[in-house]
Simulated scan of single mutants.
Amino acid sequence: MSSDREASPASDTACRGGSQHIDHEQRRIRDGGRPYLPSDVLDHEAARPVGDPLTLGPV
């Protein structure tokens, strides 16, 4: 079953922000600026701001 729905600009922005966070934190880990964390922990960190009502902006 396919969906005709497209991602909203807000969800696109959230996905980019999460990917950027993960990339940044992986670089910090690689460069020794942060202890190693498994990818599921980094994914959780990246998703937290998306679900935080204080970061969603005006309704």
Rank of each mutant, 00 (worst) to 15 (best):
S3C: 00
S3M: 01
D4Y: 07
D4H: 08
D4P: 12
D4N: 14
R5V: 08
R5C: 04
P9F: 06
A10G: 02
A10I: 01
A10H: 03
D12H: 10
T13W: 07
T13M: 09
T13K: 14
T13F: 08
T13S: 11
A14Y: 03
C15G: 12
C15T: 10
C15F: 06
G18M: 15
G18A: 15
S19Y: 09
S19L: 14
S19G: 15
Q20K: 12
Q20I: 07
H21F: 15
H21R: 13
I22C: 09
I22K: 12
D23M: 13
H24T: 15
Q26V: 11
R27G: 02
R27S: 11
R28K: 14
I29N: 05
R30M: 05
R30I: 03
G32I: 08
G32N: 02
G32H: 06
G33E: 12
R34K: 13
R34S: 04
R34P: 00
R34L: 14
P35K: 00
P35H: 04
P35V: 08
P35I: 02
P38M: 04
P38H: 01
S39E: 14
S39W: 08
V41E: 01
V41Q: 09
V41Y: 05
L42C: 02
D43Q: 11
D43H: 06
D43F: 06
H44S: 15
E45R: 12
E45L: 14
E45K: 07
A46M: 01
A46C: 02
A46Y: 01
R48A: 14
R48G: 11
R48F: 12
P49Q: 02
P49A: 03
V50Y: 07
V50H: 10
G51R: 09
P53M: 00
L54N: 06
T55L: 14
L56V: 03
L56F: 05
P58D: 06
P58H: 00
